[in-house]
């Protein structure tokens, strides 16, 4: 992963970092400062479920997973609803960035192992940096 790191922190990548920085600032701004003012009306599916009389099917069902740390986009224990929503947005942005970058790195590492195996020449174990 040395090559990747070198490329990422080279001068040539400066423009990319600026782009990413601006995009991240916009994203955090939306998640933290705009999301508390989003419409709280039911969404398309919820509304159809209410009107066509099948929303009860979800209300009666036991949730299959109840371990969500931030259910319904509101951080627990924060009294101000808008702050609770904004904080949940910040958490969500951090988690999605980490998960997506992690998945990309995983694919990158797996590919490197795969191509090295295919090349066949190198048998010595090399530590995989992460």
């Amino acid at each position: 992963m040395d090559g990747l790191r070198k490329k990422l922190f080279s001068r040539k990548s400066l423009g990319l970092w600026i782009f990413l920085g601006v995009a991240l600032a916009v994203t955090v701004g939306l998640a933290v400062f705009v999301s508390p003012w989003a419409s709280s009306s039911p969404d398309g599916l919820e509304k159809v479920a209410e009107e066509k009389g099948f929303s009860g099917a979800a209300e009666d069902a036991e949730p299959a997973w109840s371990g969500s740390p931030v259910p319904d986009y509101a951080v627990r224990g924060v009294e101000n609803e808008r702050v609770a929503t904004g904080l949940s947005g910040l958490i969500g942005v951090a988690v999605t960035v980490a998960a997506a970058v992690g998945l990309g790195l995983l694919a990158f590492v797996l590919n490197r192992i795969h191509t090295r195996k295919k090349a066949g020449g190198e048998t010595r174990e090399q530590p995989i940096e992460t």
Binding site: L4, T27, L30, S35, G89, V93, A99, A100, V101
Partner: peptide, 17 residues
């Protein structure tokens, strides 16, 4: 790889709105 991260985060944020 960084684009994966920022795109996912942007979509997450925009879906809240």
């Amino acid at each position: 790889i960084p684009m994966l991260g920022i795109t996912a985060a942007f979509i997450f944020a925009a879906q809240m709105l």
